[in-house]
Amino acid sequence: MKWKTKILPWVIPIGLLLTWQVSASIGILSTRVLPNPLDIVSAATNLTKSGQLPADVWTSTKRAFVGFLIGGGLGFLLGLVNGISKISEKLLDSSIQMIRNIPHLALLPIVILWFGIGEEAKLFLVALGTFFPIYLNTYHGIRSVDPSLIEMAYVYELKGFSLFWHVIFPAALPSILVGVRFALGITWVTLIVAETIAADSGIGYMAMNAREFMQLDVVVLSILLYALLGKLSDMIAKIAEKRLIKWHPSHQNE
């Protein structure tokens, strides 16, 4: 019974993959439309041997990580400060909300003008894109801490940092983590766009390069790589969430 429930989710993907392979090899599906799965695997092996694939994956991952860290870090800090301090909130929040209305990807042309196609352009866009979800969720998380718990903490004489650490931060954490997962999604979308349009390295660059030489297998490979990395970072976030908020009823009895 148990192996059945484990295998069942895989039936359709594996079936599709087989159909794809078979229809490509008997010629129903032209390799000009989609390369067959085995070609993609061999393209991956070749590129790995030549070192290009690991290098590009590393470049993209690094960009994602650093951009996320800068944008997310700033968003977290500002969300924290504005959540706690009324004065800072009055000063900053409405300006931040205004900037939020500009879709960050719309800035791409001007970002290219400013930074060219160097690293800064990608980092800037990723940082900008991840800033807002983390800012908003941190701010909101801190603002919606149950006041009755704060009052309880007041009676039991928690103040300053210990009030923050034992009550406010854990209360806001679920909301912050929602922001993190959202921001991770945005990170990859931003990179895909930025690397495809303006880059001289990374997965997106690999795809655009391959397109010029009609290497369809490499193009599809790049797409799959993005999907994989996106999935991977979401999984890491999920595991982190499970550990950090294991007290939450939704993570119990698992």
Partner: peptide, 16 residues
């Protein structure tokens, strides 16, 4: 009651 949901029973009593 007002227990902190993110602290176990022991740590809730230990508050403050």
């Amino acid at each position: 009651g007002r227990l902190l949901p993110w602290k176990n029973v022991y740590d809730n009593v230990a508050i403050g």
